[in-house]
């Protein structure tokens, strides 16, 4: 029995720069295992330990996802082995293209009990890849999953829903996107880092995937221009009075226009 966990090697857009023409430049941003995918790996590891199953990481992306830096960073978080699909064509793959590459890789693996994913990737944040992977494989998909147990032939899942939680029973393998607080992530220790260097990494070829349309233009984000007014806070009461009268003048307080 295998537990597969999909993780993305990506950089935080907070560190990207946006040029005047709207081109996003990630070249100075450092990639890492996407924040919430570390939660997914932790959940998968616990599940693997409980059931004596292998925990296999799976990532797809540009050539950088197959570098030693990237694979060791993922393996040191407790995976037993890795599958990597690295191809320049996948660098800019969208949610569907990424999901196609993941589904193709999964189709070649026997005896998968569950595919665990993160809640959302740090750079795209669509919460869509798990849904499309499930659609391609014909597997059930649940998100916001807070707990998972494996029973013979079934998965027992708990998930957060608006206003509470739900327990569900799923027959057969499924794609489960775990909630961001489904597990507490520990930083890998020295032993984990050393062990990572010896774990197997399997590279798989990339198939062609759907393109994300034809790019016509890019632009910087345009929103309401901000006024950037600094209110001195040396005297909190005076600062408060100044803010309140400014907001009142703007008409955004109770009884303001509209």
């Amino acid at each position: 029995m295998k537990i597969v966990v999909a993780y993305k090697w990506a950089a935080d857009p907070q560190e990207a720069t946006v040029a005047a023409d709207g081109q996003v430049d990630f070249s100075r941003a450092k990639s890492a295992v996407s924040d919430y995918d570390a939660v997914a790996i932790t959940v998968a590891r616990h599940l693997g330990d409980t059931h004596g199953a292998d925990v296999v990481g799976l990532t797809v992306g540009g050539p950088e996802v197959a570098t030693g830096l990237a694979t060791k960073a993922a393996l040191s978080r407790g995976l037993d082995a890795l599958m990597v699909v690295a191809d320049p064509a996948l660098t800019a793959a969208g949610s569907t293209g990424t999901a196609q590459a993941l589904a193709t890789a999964l189709a070649g693996v026997d005896d998968i009990a569950v595919l665990i994913t993160g809640d959302s990737s740090v750079d795209v944040g669509a919460k869509l890849v798990p849904a499309v992977v499930g659609g391609l494989l014909g597997w059930p998909v649940l998100t916001e999953v807070t707990a998972v147990a494996i029973e013979p032939g079934a998965l027992v899942v708990e998930r957060a829903v608006s206003g509470g939680t739900e327990q569900l029973r799923i027959d057969g393998p499924a794609v489960l996107a775990v909630a961001t607080d489904a597990a507490t992530v520990k930083a890998p220790g020295m032993k984990d880092v050393l062990a990572a260097a010896k774990k197997p990494v399997q590279q798989l070829p990339a198939d062609p995937v759907v393109a994300d349309g034809t790019l016509r233009s890019t632009a910087r984000l345009s929103g309401p221009a901000r006024r950037g007014i600094q209110i001195s806070t040396d005297d909190p009461a005076a600062a408060a009075a100044e803010l309140v009268s400014a907001l009142r003048a703007d008409g955004v307080l109770i009884g303001g226009q509209q």
């Binding site: 994300d212 910087r220 345009s222």
Partner: peptide, 8 residues
């Protein structure tokens, strides 16, 4: 952080 226009 930016917007893109694409044609499909």
């Amino acid at each position: 952080i930016a917007v893109t226009t694409r044609e499909f």
